[in-house]
Design a protein around this nucleic acid. Structure first.
Lengths: 329, 329
DNA sequence: CTGAAAGCGCTTACAG
DNA sequence: CTGAAAGCGCTTACAG
């Protein structure tokens, strides 16, 4: 494999000049630049990024840490990450934790090893203060969740308001017994959505029942199982608010398997608005998040921080939207 | 950030010794090793991988090039990649081409820049001989597709046989008018599945109709639109074989929108067996691929080639399975 | 506008 | 078992 030295020799210049040409440094005469570029094209020279990065003390790579790449919600966000990273010539190191908290910490060492210039945490299991500590050492942006205690850069919707509105919508439709299927409660956004749900009940003077809050893990299966539990109870909810579309679909499946009609016998609202919503029957009412936008904005923010492009907005809240479809009425 | 030099000074040894301790080189006395490890733990030293890799001329990173991370089929395969890579301490650089052929070539330059030690192509749009050329320069494994002309390492199912069996199953159920919804025909596996379909018709002396082969792009939308076209035709198919589950679900949706009953009026078979299959109604009959296995085996093969662990099987064909559910009878 | 030279932080023959 | 020293392939002050 050719190195810069070879190109320099062929072009009769120093490696410094070749390097300058490659980095579009203005301090090169047009004549020299052309000569060097010709050689580069001719021999198809590509600089060794490892060497360049070592010297520049960067990696031009960012880590995206997320729980599960097979989750369609994250898949869409990743597209936003990707497009924005590519625009700036950064690569993405995929860090799928498989919902394993230890893995999350494991990946953080990427940073110490200088393999990445920054990290996007698309949902975190780590404690808030750990995230904060991390963000003091290295550029970190948290996607999908809002953290208020610390000044950690964040791109997300307002999960509390979104959950409150969804719950209030059900209340307005006459429901008073609303079952909540939450995400894992070590995830901040899961807790925020519980808050929103509680706020809605309080605002409408509705009683709060412990049994009506059940913790799922975002999967179809957990939604199914929790719904079965609800249905086995003597005091059944008349509406379900699930913290992910997949759990909502699981709940839908459970209701159908028991011969219940949706939305006549029971109403269901999901969260995220993944493609699946319009593929099930009836089509799922849900809270839409601007997934792609969250991804691209989070990456943009991270790259701005990495490249210290002056002041960057630290907390960005994007709009959500209640998508009323066929599982509510 | 501390460097090896600092650790060496603190431990009163040379950097060579620190390096040996870090790489588990046996040529270090237990006493020295302990002394060095104590310092390393104490100051939380992490070696700069960039520097180590430059020196060793590796990157301990592999590129996974795939069309669309949001495709649930690939998402599951990626899990196989991930687990196997992690086992060997390799990282994965995510290269989602967004179904853009130019992007595919773009990513190949990662190799020239020494940013990755090898490449997995999870489905390729590149011409066979280009893939071959690439595989001569750098370790390459092709996942999901089988290439026979060249000796390119490959992990896949037998797409031809799988498609033939699925088509024959429909024929055995009495269908003679079978519409095929293919994937993009620049993808090898799409063409292989067309081959299998043709073989089945030939084997059963059934006529081959050009109109019954329609090219989709693996998306729900394309399946929907193609099905609508079939249904608008005076000579309608009585069964559909789609080259992806998402297209099959699109076809299903189209049939339902026209008031057709599945499987009574029309039968549908998909391909891949993604989770969606059991979430739609009726549940989708499909050809299951061992997705996770394809991923882990492909990564294992790639890492073996990279680390030159002797002879590696060059072509691995994994079993597929027809999953008969509710959209056929 | 250009080049000589130092240095990024490691690893690895080589010598002892 | 250990260390001195060269070198991986770039970039970047510095000097001219």
């Amino acid at each position: 494999m050719l190195k810069m030295e070879d190109v320099a020799r062929l072009a009769n210049v120093s490696t410094a000049t070749v390097s300058r040409v490659l980095s579009n440094n203005k301090n090169v005469s047009n004549k020299t630049r052309k000569k060097v570029l010709d050689i580069i094209n001719q021999v198809e020279y590509k600089p060794n990024r490892l060497a360049a990065n070592l010297r520049k003390n960067t990696s031009e790579t960012v880590a995206v840490i997320l729980p599960d790449i097979a989750n369609p919600f994250f898949a869409e966000i990743v597209k936003g990450f990707r497009d924005e990273a590519l625009k700036s010539g950064y690569y993405i190191l995929l860090c799928d934790t498989g919902n394993n908290t230890r893995q999350e910490e494991e990946f953080v060492k990427l940073v110490k090893e200088r393999l990445v210039d920054g990290i996007i945490l698309a949902t975190a299991r780590m404690a808030k203060d750990e995230i904060y500590k991390l963000s003091q050492e290295i550029p970190v942006v948290l996607a999908c969740e809002y953290i208020d205690d610390y000044e950690i850069p964040t791109v997300s919707i307002d999960n509390i308001s979104a959950a409150r509105e969804a719950t209030e919508y059900l209340i307005e439709q006459g429901h008073t017994e609303i079952g909540l299927i939450t995400g894992p409660l070590d995830v901040i956004l899961s807790r925020d959505r519980v808050k929103g749900y509680r706020q809605a009940l309080l605002l409408h003077d509705l009683p709060f029942r412990d049994f009506f809050i059940q913790e799922g893990d975002f999967s179809v299966k957990s939604g199914y199982e929790i719904m079965m539990k609800y249905l086995a109870h003597e005091h059944k909810p008349t509406a379900i608010f699930a913290s992910s579309d997949e759990m909502a679909v699981g709940a839908l499946k459970a209701c159908k398997s028991k011969g219940l009609r949706i939305p006549d016998d029971i109403c269901i609202i999901g969260f995220d608005d993944i493609p699946l919503c319009t593929l099930v029957e009836p089509e799922l009412t849900t809270v839409a998040q601007p997934k792609y936008e969250i991804g691209s904005q989070a990456m943009k923010m991270l790259l701005n921080i990495i490249e210290r492009k002056g002041l960057v907005q630290k907390q960005m809240v994007l709009p959500h939207q209640l998508m009323i479809r066929q599982t509510t009425r």
